[in-house]
């Protein structure tokens, strides 16, 4: 069940667009903001508010990288794997993260703290390698700094 707050926020998004369906990405963002991810049940409830079938909404939800249809950890690490970060050695950062957290791409640490995902170019190629954790951007990342960076996100 969507909460009263979620319903109010989705209705607000619907009021801003000429067709209900056009608010669907914003609606998914609302749900994800509150719950961290979008479950099948949340998807159905959201679809009915938008006058869409769950399948139609899921076709949108699964198209975009940053709508999560599986549970994620409290913090999501998005590691840039595009060309400038590749040239500057992001693979070492990746290997170190995987070893330290004992997870692969797409997995979450057993304590539910971190999920690790590869991500396309973060648009900060002059300060490669780069990664984001939640809303925080880290640039010119070195292996030595990684522990300190992770420490900020409990």
């Amino acid at each position: 069940m969507l909460t009263t707050e979620e319903i109010a926020q989705i209705e607000h998004e619907i009021s801003l667009v000429p067709q209900k369906k056009a608010a669907c990405i914003e609606a998914l963002k609302v749900v994800q903001q509150h719950r961290g991810w979008v479950s099948d049940e949340d998807l159905k409830d959201t679809a009915s508010m938008l006058g869409m079938s769950p399948e139609e909404l899921d076709s949108v939800a699964t198209f975009y990288n940053l709508i999560f249809r599986q549970p994620v950890g409290r913090h999501v690490i998005l590691l840039c794997d595009s060309i400038s970060c590749w040239v500057m050695g992001y693979e070492q950062i990746r290997d170190h993260l995987m070893q330290k957290l004992q997870i692969k791409y797409g997995e979450t640490t057993p304590d539910g703290r971190f999920t690790l995902l590869p991500n396309v170019c973060l648009g900060t190629c002059d300060r490669a390698p780069a990664l984001m954790i939640d809303d925080h951007l880290y640039e010119n990342v070195t292996i030595e700094e990684l522990d300190g960076i992770l420490h900020h996100h409990r």
């Binding site: 667009v17 067709q19 369906k21 056009a22 608010a23 669907c24 990405i25 914003e26 998914l28 963002k29 076709s59 949108v60 198209f63 975009y64 990288n65 940053l66 709508i67 396309v120």
Partner: peptide, 21 residues
């Protein structure tokens, strides 16, 4: 919410309409 395709102008318009880009 991500996807390179959104940079293509007609795909961007689909994304703005809440569709797959």
């Amino acid at each position: 919410v991500g996807r390179y395709m959104c940079g293509e102008e007609t795909a961007l318009l689909n994304a703005l309409e809440g569709k797959r880009a």
